[in-house]
């Protein structure tokens, strides 16, 4: 028996909107730790790791570890039917081939339930070791989204370079080239507007903008994004989910042949 009650249901709506274009089908894993997911895109270039910690739910009952295969597009369709202020409860019985999403309006005058068929998904989990990154950039998530969108109108790939001067995003395409440099800036009114760069080693890595643009679908989840880079390692783009957990995207770099 599984019953997870999330008062801020909009968080789950936003999570689905942020990952449904990158991944088609995924297993949601439920344990005493929380509600989590790890899934790769079909070409195994990018990976999404989601964690919603059990403490973040108003009610969290998960009698035994459960893995539920879901089509993310279908799940997003159902969650779209929940109001932004609705409380969402996820329910499943042991051995059942369905999951139920229950939506309660804040005033409890409308209660809906949507039952979705589960699916069997063969998915391999990758072991992702905790790594010390050469450079960690924290910046406003809307700024990062803007940069990825703007650069993708010029080129297909972005080179992200971190030096003492700041973080530089560069691209080249048929019509020309573009460079955007963001300097560390901590003298802002709101801490979330800051750009903070922690650098141990200079880093320069190249990534497909197609994927970084998928990641920025998570922008509504958090006002800041953290980009962790090490030479010759996948980049980690993390959006924290207030007091609950995170959505992390991993993307393998491109190399010159």
């Amino acid at each position: 028996m599984l019953e997870l009650r999330l008062v801020q249901g909009s968080l789950l709506k936003k999570v689905l909107e942020s990952i449904k274009e990158l991944v088609n089908d995924a297993n949601f894993d439920c344990s005493s730790t929380g509600f989590s997911l790890q899934a790769m895109d079909s070409s195994h270039v990018a990976l999404v790791a989601l964690l919603l910690r059990s403490e973040g739910f108003e009610h969290y009952r998960c009698d035994r570890n459960l893995s539920m295969g879901m089509n993310l597009n279908n799940m997003a369709k159902m969650l779209k039917c929940a109001g932004n202020d609705d409380i969402i409860t996820i329910k499943a019985d042991d051995g059942s081939d369905t999951v139920t999403f229950m939506f309660e309006s804040p005033t409890q005058d409308k209660i809906s339930d949507f039952e979705m068929k589960l699916m069997d998904i063969d998915s391999e989990h990758l072991g992702i070791p905790e790594a010390e990154y050469d450079a960690i950039v924290r910046m406003p998530s809307a700024e990062f989204a803007r940069i990825c969108k703007d650069l993708s109108s010029i080129g297909d790939t972005v080179v992200i370079s971190v030096t003492k001067e700041g973080v530089k995003f560069s691209t080249k395409g048929d019509i020309g080239a573009a460079n955007i440099v963001c300097r560390q800036n901590t003298t802002v009114d709101k801490p979330d507007d800051a750009t903070v760069i922690e650098m141990k080693e200079p880093v320069s890595l190249q990534f497909a903008l197609r994927y970084t643009n998928f990641f920025t679908k998570a922008t509504p989840l958090s006002s800041t994004v953290t980009i962790s880079l090490s030479n010759e390692l996948p980049v980690v783009v993390e959006y924290k989910i207030a007091e609950m957990g995170y959505v992390r995207f991993y993307l393998a770099p491109k190399i010159e042949e």
Partner: peptide, 14 residues
Amino acid sequence: KQKQQVLSRFFAPK
């Protein structure tokens, strides 16, 4: 020419 790497080059299956 650029080559897109895949994640299994960096992370092993669990």
